[in-house]
Design a binder for these strands. Sequence first.
DNA 1: ATGAAAGCGCTAACAT
DNA 2: ATGTTAGCGCTTTCAT
Lengths: 348, 348
Amino acid sequence: MAVTIKDVAKLANVAPSTVSRVIANSSRISERTKERVREAMEELGYHPNFNARSLVNQQTNTLGVIIPSSAKIAFQNPFFPEVIRGITSKAYLEKFGLYLSTGQTENEILEEVRQMVQSRRVDGILLLYSKVDDKVINYLIQQDFPFVLIGRPYEAEAMKVSYVNNDNLKAAKTVTEYLLLLGHEHIGFIGGNLDYVVTRDHKEGYQQALHKAGFESKQEYIVYYDEIQEGGQEAVIELMSLKTPPTALVVADDLMALGVLRMLDEMEISVPEEMSVVSFNNVMLSELSSPPLTTVDIHIYELGFQATDCLIKKIHDPKQPTKKVIVPHKFIKRQTCRKRVAQKEISS
Amino acid sequence: MAVTIKDVAKLANVAPSTVSRVIANSSRISERTKERVREAMEELGYHPNFNARSLVNQQTNTLGVIIPSSAKIAFQNPFFPEVIRGITSKAYLEKFGLYLSTGQTENEILEEVRQMVQSRRVDGILLLYSKVDDKVINYLIQQDFPFVLIGRPYEAEAMKVSYVNNDNLKAAKTVTEYLLLLGHEHIGFIGGNLDYVVTRDHKEGYQQALHKAGFESKQEYIVYYDEIQEGGQEAVIELMSLKTPPTALVVADDLMALGVLRMLDEMEISVPEEMSVVSFNNVMLSELSSPPLTTVDIHIYELGFQATDCLIKKIHDPKQPTKKVIVPHKFIKRQTCRKRVAQKEISS
DNA sequence: ATGAAAGCGCTAACAT
DNA sequence: ATGTTAGCGCTTTCAT
């Protein structure tokens, strides 16, 4: 078996508790013994047993990270790697470990979360998505277990939920207004899955901008897709089949926008000449597309970093008031938007 | 505090050991008491304490997942999410948890790995990358700790390392031969970081194909980049500045190929008319680019799944012989390659 | 078929 | 300043 505290104690000629105190660098141990004990630890290659510590301390220094159930789709989206990167940075600084959920369906995940909290496998939980009416959130609230949401809770009841989010409504409103200013009057909206709060916020912002400008937001210009791969493409077909097809598109995220560009390319509709496109997230590949995407940078890394910060604080002091952090976004203009050209000018 | 085995025992009027046996579904407990105990567990909402179990069993049912140090770059690449997805699936099936590395530099990661193994925080380790002369690998070998490599060890000494890999050399050879068959005589090679074994395998395959066809592989056609973002772009500039610029490109991976396409687009070099491009991985966005990428599907998900399978088997039976699994690849022809047109035909 | 007791490796209260 | 001891929650001999 591995070397334990007892072995070190024996070699250093002290009691196990002394060794323990040396590990904690207790001030009640003389420098001389500390020295001796440390040498013994070195010599034996001692490392404290993680489980033993966790057991007695009643804490694991580990954060549970919950990835949405549609992992197949979700994980393809650079959003998740990037949040995790943010989480990772902060967790490393605070010496916390990361424990990843592995469930694929909503129920599997719920069961997993239950395990995590009840078996004390983690000290807190990071939820990487916010769904409308989510069972996991409800469970966590009911258990009063420390957790932080990335996104925002949908239900009003969830006042006590800490979260880190962007102002997605405002972002959507801004890009729509921008398109409006460019003279576009028929603007399509390609949203993600309606179960996600972010989709609803985007839609709301889009509609507010339209209404404010005196336009009616017509149902047929609004389309939702969750399948990123085919999603963008089908959405384009649907919208371009309208009697009056849109001349600009607000797209749920960069990856889907890529699919949109691809489809547009196939249909020989040129971007931005004949169609303007704006999307959200500003993941790296939005710069690599042809043409590069005009998009909203939501600072994904920061979302993860802040959420982790917030969670760890909450773990250290459970009485912390609930916090709502809004990470600012930034509109990035690249090459997929252009002033609208009147129809005749094109067709002539 | 949470409910423990003792509480259950008390309620069911049995000894703690009996409860423990019920959890393990021991055959030595009568159905009647099992029933009673289970009811008590239900009533109290009992869940076994993970750390206590790990402590006595000397196993954690957790796998350590080590992400390469250049996480910033690495994680942007869809390769990693996709391997993790494969890992996740298998881990879930086997009821193993996943513990993620958080270190950013090579040394941080090495230290983390040390912690993981010495503190018994994980039962085995999955290395998601294979670097030439990697300290982590050497440490793991020396500790004789169960681990599986995704990729392959570079040093011959590492005979005892189990790994899951593609035949990257062959894949690179095949695509180069394909380009050769299309009449291309000047084929550029844009590889990833030379520290990674996969890069060396790609280069080797590329060169073998060239030599077999009677061509010399010239140094100036071979270029390495690790920065995905700018990498592809700079590489293109470098290669196109040659006196005889290549008419075809073998690119390290899809993401970088995207950057290449983007740059080519900017330089108004049309793909595939004036330049053929092949890459590796077949991540989802390779289908979304314009034009869609001709690439090699290396079955990333499968790599993760197989590696996890292999590791768990090894954990269950440490005497298992070392295994080398080669996941087959598949050449996916899409729209970035075309027969070479003689120079004059274009310029005329 | 079940209970009692020891022990996994560590920390912390209580001695001294 | 250091040692003794109990106990975290569980599993596993060893009894009965």
